[in-house]
Amino acid sequence: MRIFYHPILGKLEEKRKITLEVDGKKIAAYEGEPIAAALLAAGIRVLRMSPKREEPRGVFCAIGRCTDCVMIVDGQPNVRTCVTPARDGMKIQTQKGLGKWAKKL
């Protein structure tokens, strides 16, 4: 959920709205905000399933250090969504295990 009004920070600044495609579904986002924030705003908190135990994971450190929030972004797995800015039309997928590469390796 977005914090549209914050008692200290005031009204949410209007930024350019963009659309992300997450596992085939379209969600609205603001340009430049971290992908993870956009997903959180859309109520998507499970970002990947771990490779060995296939357990759900989400945002943990939010500063790009723990690498727990990695997802497949535009066909590339292991993208740290908490520090990767959202851009219009990005295709984002929940990463299962090591993830599938769009490009043939």
């Binding site: 920070l9 989400g58 450190c61 939010a62 500063i63």
Partner: peptide, 24 residues
């Protein structure tokens, strides 16, 4: 490791910088 467990700073970043509630 469950989604929704995070650093306090992480929650802070999400709500104060990105203006998103990390939970309810």
């Amino acid at each position: 490791t469950l989604s929704g467990v995070m650093g306090a700073g992480a929650a802070q970043t999400m709500m104060n910088v990105h203006r998103v509630q990390p939970g309810q």
